[in-house]
């Protein structure tokens, strides 16, 4: 198997789906000639032409709205919003229409589209380029919200998202884009949307995380083993909505302790929903308060202070140890 970065793995998913199904097309700002500002769509224009790899005018609401129209007439658009911080221009189209056409038409129209965008910090960027506000989408009925954590899952989940009959918001952790390589099979691989995964087994503590936070969380789990003799279980959510609460509620029934790690703001963040599910389903098993290691409730600072905003191994360890010592 070839070792790939997340950028290469996503590119492979797009290429293979376009090869297979000519209803799949790609649109967005700079996705054609430029291959995308992160080069995720590199080579697609040459392979499939400008009718299928569309360099659009600069208007995010249009990119989403036009994709909805394309889906109504049977295409399967994969649109790119250059940074999630600009996706709020498209939010209205996704919330008011992509999420609702099935219901509004009483089942007649499926909006089979994917809206991809890089999210999160870690690339020393300008304002509006580092946010992690997946809850806007996760809170919206009718949408699905997927966030892969590494190259192999990114490829498999994107293939599933393209084939999913419902609109999928696909957030790509830009800090992971080229951070490491993983083996990605050339042959087709999918992964079910709405399913989380236990990526490390343990009996003493449950970490729940996703996206760019998976790597530091696993590192923290390894440190806990070495330094504290603690076996932490790590759950990678992969899909934020619909949320698979089965694995993490079961895990906490085993461990009694939970630490939730995400880059998103703390208040009303994804962790708040996970805690609610844990309280509903695993309350009597809890041995300690559930801990949240998250971004703070401030606009994400520019990169000089970003390290203090985004959870890192140290902060994750601190949270875990407080939970263990309770």
């Amino acid at each position: 198997m070839k070792k790939m970065t997340m950028v290469e793995a996503i590119n492979l998913a797009l290429k293979q789906e376009m090869e297979k199904d000519e209803d799949v097309l790609v649109l967005g700002e700079d996705v054609g000639m430029d291959g995308g500002v992160f080069r995720v769509t590199k080579g697609l224009l040459d392979a499939y032409g400008e009718d299928r790899v569309i360099d659009t005018p600069l208007a995010e609401s249009m990119i989403a709205g036009v994709s909805i129209g394309m889906a109504i007439h049977g295409l399967k658009p994969v649109c790119e919003i250059q940074f999630s911080g600009f996706s709020y221009f498209s939010f209205h189209q996704m919330e008011a229409h992509a999420a609702r056409y099935r219901g509004r038409s009483h089942g007649r129209f499926s909006i089979q589209m994917v809206l991809r965008c890089p999210y999160g910090g870690g690339v020393r960027a300008l304002e509006h380029h580092s946010e992690s506000r997946e809850v806007y989408y996760a809170h919206t009925p009718g949408l699905k919200m997927v966030i892969p954590s590494g190259p192999r899952k990114a490829r498999a989940l994107l293939v599933s998202a393209i084939r999913d009959p419902d609109p999928v918001i696909f957030y790509e952790p830009k800090a992971v884009y080229r951070a490491f390589r993983e083996e990605v099979p050339e042959d087709e691989e999918t992964f079910p949307i709405g399913q989380s995964e236990v990526v490390r087994e343990g009996k003493d503590l449950t970490f729940i995380t996703y996206g760019a936070m998976l790597k530091p969380t696993i590192d923290a789990a390894e440190t806990l083993k070495e330094e504290d003799g603690v076996e932490a279980e790590v759950i990678d959510l992969l899909t934020i909505s619909p949320l698979d609460d089965e694995k993490f509620t079961e895990s906490v029934q085993k461990t009694g302790r939970a630490v939730i790690v995400h880059e998103a703001h703390r208040s009303f963040g994804p962790g708040a929903e996970m805690i609610a599910r844990l309280v509903e389903k695993s309350f009597l098993y809890l041995e300690a308060p559930i801990c949240r290691v998250t971004g703070y409730d401030v606009v994400i600072p520019l990169y000089q202070r970003e390290k203090d905003y985004i959870p890192d191994v140290k902060r994750i360890l601190k949270g875990a140890r407080e939970t263990l010592d309770f």
Partner: peptide, 15 residues
């Protein structure tokens, strides 16, 4: 907001 759906459908027709 429906105008964008219309031009999207129109693009798909042309495609």
């Amino acid at each position: 907001s429906q105008l964008l759906h219309a031009v999207g459908i129109a693009y798909a027709i042309k495609y």
